[in-house]
Design a binder for these strands. Structure first.
Length: 569
DNA sequence: GCCGTTTTCGGCCCGACTGTTTTCAGTCG
C-alpha cells in the first residue's frame, strides 16, 4: 500500500502538482510504519486515525484493499510514461528536471537519458551544461551499482572509525554521528557525521582525504559528501560550537521529526534551523548550544534520538510523559547464546569470560535442540551432560558470573517442544523458537506458537517473527494473539539482537509493552565477540519505547533466578 | 491532500551546494 501511495506521489510530482505529493508520501510512510495489516486497521475502522490519512486517501486505500484495484493510480500511470519514474531515481534529477527532459527532449526512460547524455545531446538546452551531463551519467552509474541499505550493525563500526579518524587527524572540538544511524534504525542508507568546530576547512580536507574515500560527490566550506568503497555514502557537516545543539538536532532527524519541531517553533513565533532557535521578529537567538536547550525552549522534554520518528514522541514530550527508555549499562545479562556443544565457536568458559568482561551478572547457555540437526542440536542425553558441564563451569567462575543452563528448543510444526517435559523442567532457562516450516498459513503458525507459549515450559519466545533483515520476510503471525497468550502465561518475547535479526522489531516492542509482555534481549551469539550485539538490541528496545522495567535482563541475578524458578512447573 | 492551543480555509521547515546564471532554480537531506 505504501509503495502504491509513493508511486502516486512520484506521478503527481511528474505532472508538476504541488503539495499533494508530500501528503501522499506522509500517508505512505505512516501506513508503512504500522505493525498491523492495513486490512485489520480498516476492519477496526481506524484508517483515518493514522496521521496524514484523511478522507480521500482512506477511500483509495479501502478501495484497493477491497477490490485489488486503484483506478486513480491507473489513470495517473496512463498519463505519464513509465520510464520517467526511473529517471527520478537518478541522484540530482528531480521532478522539474524530469519534466524538462521529457517535454523538451522527448526522453522518457533511463536508457534514453543515458544515451542522450553519452552523446552530449543534453548540453546547450536551457539549464543543461557539460557538468550536468557528467553528473547525470555519474548518477546513472551509481544507481546501477547501488547497494542495498546497510545493517545498523555494519554501519556503526564504519562510522565510529571515521569519527575516530577525524578526532585524531583533525583534532576536532566536537563530533557526533547523526542521521538514521544515531536514531538506531535497523537499516541505514548513508552515514551522517556532524562536527562542531570554529575552523572547519582542515576538517573538510581531512574528511575528503580519508583513505577509504573513492569519490567526492561535493565539497563546500561546511558540507561535504563522499562515497567510500562498496558504495557507502558519508555526509559531513560542520557548524560553529555555539550552534552545536541545534545542528545536532537538525542533523539527527528524522526529517518528519524536524518538520514537526520546526512547526512548533513557527507557532511560537520562532525559527529553528541548524544554527539555532531564533525569535522570528528580532532574530535574537533563544537556544542552540545543546539539544536540551532547543527542546526546552520549544516547551518539550528532551527527546532521545531513538524516539525521533514523529511517532507520538512530540505529543508525549509536550505533555512531559515520555518514557524513561532503557540505558545500555542497565543490562545485567544475556539470555541467548551458543557454544561449541552445538553450532557455536567458543567453549562455555570462553563465553563466560566474555560475559565477565562485559560486567554481566549472568548468561544463559542455550544451545540448539535435537531436531536442528544442521546446527548440531543436542540430544536429551547430550543436554544432560551439558547441564553438568555448565554447572562445573559455573562453580569454576567462583561467583564472578552465574551461568544458567538452558536450551533453545525448537517449536515443532504441531507446537510441541523438542525435548520431553521431564528434561525441560530441570533446566534453568528455556528459550523456544521456530526453525522449520516457515511458510505455514497465518492461523496455523499462530496456533503453533501459542501452543508453545501455553505449554508452561518456556520462558522466552526466541526471535518471534523469524525475519532476516533484507533476506527473509517474517513468518505470518497474528502478533496480537501471540502477545495476549504471552501476557496470560507470563512468557517473555525475545528481542534477538543478532545484527540481521533485531526481532522483535521496534514497533513490535511497543506492542509488547502495551500488552504487558516483558522483552528479553538476547544476542544469539555463536562467537564470544557477538555478545557485543547486545548494544544493537538495546538500541532497538529504546526505539520501541521500552523502559528498564520492561526488559527482563535489567533484573539482577537473584531476581532473574527467582523469576525463572518460579516459572518451573 | 491534510490539518487546526488563532484557523474548516489557507497555509504547508529550512538552508547548503551546484551549475548555469548575471541573481537563482533545482535537488537534497
Amino acid at each position: 500500500m505504501a509503495q502504491l501511495l509513493n508511486e502516486i506521489a512520484d506521478l503527481l510530482d511528474l505532472q508538476g502538482v504541488a503539495f499533494k505529493p508530500v501528503a501522499y508520501r506522509r500517508a505512505a510512510r505512516n501506513i508503512e510504519d504500522m505493525d498491523e495489516p492495513v486490512a485489520d486497521i480498516i476492519a477496526r475502522g481506524a484508517l483515518q486515525d493514522i496521521s496524514g490519512v484523511g478522507e480521500a486517501i482512506a477511500k483509495k486505500v479501502e478501495e484497493f484493499v477491497q477490490t485489488g484495484k486503484l483506478p486513480y493510480l491507473e489513470k495517473l500511470r496512463s498519463e505519464v510514461p513509465p520510464g520517467l519514474l526511473e529517471i527520478l531515481r537518478v541522484p540530482d534529477v528531480g521532478p522539474k528536471t524530469a519534466i524538462v527532459l521529457h517535454r523538451d527532449l522527448g526522453i522518457s526512460s533511463l536508457e534514453e537519458l543515458k544515451e542522450a547524455a553519452e552523446n552530449h545531446k543534453l548540453r546547450g538546452h536551457k539549464g543543461f551544461g557539460e557538468k550536468t551531463e557528467e553528473k547525470i551519467l555519474q548518477g546513472i552509474k551509481m544507481l546501477e551499482a547501488k547497494g542495498q541499505r546497510m545493517l545498523l550493525g555494519d554501519a556503526l563500526p564504519i562510522a565510529e572509525a571515521i569519527v575516530q579518524y577525524l578526532k585524531t587527524s583533525a583534532s576536532v572540538e566536537k563530533i557526533s554521528i547523526g542521521g538514521s544511524l544515531r536514531r538506531g534504525k535497523e537499516t541505514i542508507g548513508d552515514i551522517d557525521i556532524l562536527v562542531g568546530d570554529e575552523a572547519p576547512a582542515r576538517v573538510m580536507d581531512a574528511f575528503t582525504g580519508h583513505p577509504l574515500v573513492e569519490t567526492i560527490l561535493m565539497k563546500g566550506p561546511t558540507k561535504s559528501s563522499v562515497v567510500l568503497q562498496k558504495g557507502i555514502q558519508v555526509d559531513l557537516r560542520t557548524v560553529g560550537t555555539k550552534s552545536w545543539g541545534a545542528a545536532l538536532q537538525y542533523f539527527t532527524g528524522s526529517k518528519e521529526h524536524n518538520v514537526a519541531t520546526r512547526k512548533i517553533g513557527v507557532d511560537m513565533g520562532l525559527k529553528l534551523n541548524e544554527y539555532g532557535l531564533f525569535e522570528r521578529a528580532s532574530g535574537k537567538m533563544v537556544a542552540g548550544a545543546t539539544e536540551e536547550d532547543v527542546y526546552t525552549a520549544l516547551g518539550l522534554s528532551y527527546i532521545e534520538p531513538e524516539l525521533r520518528e514523529d511517532g507520538g514522541e512530540i505529543e508525549a514530550a509536550r505533555e512531559h510523559r515520555l518514557p524513561n527508555i532503557v540505558e545500555h549499562d542497565s543490562i545485567r545479562g544475556d539470555f541467548h547464546m551458543h557454544t561449541d556443544w552445538s553450532d557455536g565457536v567458543h567453549k562455555i568458559e570462553e563465553m563466560a569470560s566474555k560475559g565477565i568482561s562485559r560486567r554481566y551478572e549472568y548468561i544463559g547457555i542455550t544451545d540448539h535442540s535435537q531436531s536442528l540437526k544442521i546446527a548440531g542440536g543436542l540430544s536429551p542425553d547430550r543436554l544432560r551432560k551439558q547441564m553438568d558441564a555448565v554447572r562445573k563451569a559455573d562453580e569454576a567462575m567462583g561467583g564472578r558470573i552465574r551461568l544458567l543452563s538452558g536450551t533453545e528448543a525448537d517449536i515443532k510444526a504441531d507446537g510441541s517442544l523438542d525435548f520431553p517435559r521431564s528434561l525441560l523442567k530441570d533446566l534453568d532457562l528455556v528459550v523456544a523458537s521456530v526453525h522449520s516450516r516457515f511458510k505455514m498459513p497465518r492461523e496455523e503458525m499462530t496456533r503453533r506458537v501459542v501452543a508453545a507459549i501455553e505449554s508452561g515450559y518456556i520462558d522466552i519466545l526466541g526471535h518471534p517473527t523469524g525475519r532476516l533483515i533484507g533476506r527473509r520476510n517474517p513468518y505470518e503471525l497474528d502478533m496480537e494473539k501471540i502477545l495476549s497468550a504471552a501476557a496470560d502465561s507470563n512468557v517473555a518475547m525475545e528481542l534477538n539482537a543478532w545484527k540481521d535479526r533485531l526481532d522483535l522489531a521496534d514497533g513490535h516492542c511497543r506492542m509488547a509493552k502495551a500488552a504487558g509482555v516483558k522483552v528479553a534481549i538476547g544476542t544469539d551469539a555463536h562467537h564470544a565477540d557477538e555478545l557485543d550485539f547486545m548494544r544493537l538490541g538495546v538500541i532497538t528496545a529504546r526505539r520501541g519505547w521500552l523502559e528498564a522495567k520492561d526488559v527482563l535482563n535489567t533484573m539482577n541475578c537473584k531476581d532473574v533466578i527467582r523469576h525463572l524458578r518460579g516459572r518451573r512447573p
